[in-house]
Design a protein around this nucleic acid. Structure first.
Lengths: 207, 207
DNA sequence: AAAATGTTTGACCATTTGGTCAGGATCACG
DNA sequence: CGTGATCCTGACCAAATGGTCAAACATTTT
């Protein structure tokens, strides 16, 4: 259809600034709560100028979601059949926890979207995400069949890993209210706790 | 100050209808995304009439939060030193999971609030909630000291229980996208998984 | 049944918000 | 340097939204 004109220097800079600002605002306020004025201000641009680069508020939001979902799934993709099963899974847990520490805004962006019923991301969930989870669940099942892992439901195992790790990003306000941690100090404790939790729970019987 | 005039029959009925409608709308859309028109329509009242019973949108929201937080913490309050530690904790997990199944709107209401930084509930978290968690964490520590429980961090244990159980309410859209369950069928699997996860992980060493 | 109290509403308002548009400023390039 | 493309903005708009108010309508009390 359209000849892809390469992005100009200014386009690149401003689109990036808008997406960065939008991540800030959408993750903190949700889609409905965020305003174009906030995003424009955070990006250092005027509102009409923001709409020069993106056709609508919704266009910014969906662009963000689709760009970030991929990165978000990288840790799970890296779960491979090469290593010792328990090490692989604990490694996945720790990688995911590290994502929560490093990219809490991204986590909250998805949390907001999904808590509200995932209206703009349902396709991605039932498509690529489900496919990836199915694949990794199958891998986990082979480990169990080989007696390398305790008998547990692989889907619920994956859910529990998502839940426990993303909790530290999504429910940060609550965690901090209770622990009053010094900066990110509690992430170390969380890593120890989760590594030990999964290592114990996944050890097969005769071990 | 004010002599508490008893509620009339109509007041009781309408205030209840409004809170019920507001729970529906706020839990699905978040504070910012919900509108008084939606709430009024769901309650079967006109917008000015809703504002006759509550002084503002915010008043409805904060009333909901404060009324529900108490119920929300009942399962944790019921964690007592009377029974076998592992049974007590697994019991708590299952009670909490049952709450997610029975009251997903309440769970999502809190999830929305906390993901967005808990702006209207921070006091409750740092006050009564923290106090309750501190108390139960101390109980868990005595169990560990008695050798009845594996050595784990009690705070992170509680966080992990909240995370894994509320996940089935808060991230329902995602869970359903992946499992395509028949109604609530997956809650049974989740109960088995979580009971087994915690039972294995909490068993003390020489056992 | 009248007075007092409580309930409901239509009409209205100010503000916020997503989005448009015509024209001016700036930039890239031959 | 000139010209076409790109970039930016002030002014503006329509719809949505939280909230007000005077007056009508019900209900309870005396």
């Amino acid at each position: 259809m359209n000849v892809e004109r390469p992005q100009t220097r200014i386009q690149k800079k401003n689109r990036e600034a808008i997406l960065e600002a939008a991540l800030d605002v959408f993750s903190a306020e949700g889609f409905r709560g965020a305003t174009l004025d906030q995003i424009a201000a955070a990006a250092g641009l005027s509102k009409p100028n923001v709409l020069y680069y993106f056709s609508s508020k919704e266009a910014i939001y969906t662009e963000l979601l689709s760009v970030l979902l991929d990165t978000w799934l990288d840790p799970l993709r890296a779960l491979s059949g090469d290593g010792e099963p328990i090490d692989e899974i604990v490694g996945y847990v720790l990688r995911k926890l590290e994502m929560s520490r490093e990219y809490p805004r991204e986590s909250r962006l998805f949390a907001n979207e999904i808590v509200q019923g995932a209206p703009r991301i349902a396709d991605q969930i039932e498509g690529p995400l489900k496919a990836l989870v199915d694949e990794k669940a199958a891998l986990i099942r082979t480990w169990i069949a080989n007696g390398q892992l305790a008998e547990i439901d692989p889907y619920h195992l994956i859910f529990s890993i998502w839940a426990t790790t993303q909790h530290y990003a999504d429910f940060d306000a609550q965690v901090r209210g209770i622990l009053s941690p010094d900066g990110d100090a509690h992430f170390g404790e969380a890593a120890n706790f989760l590594a030990s939790l999964y290592a114990r729970a996944l050890r097969p019987k005769g071990d």
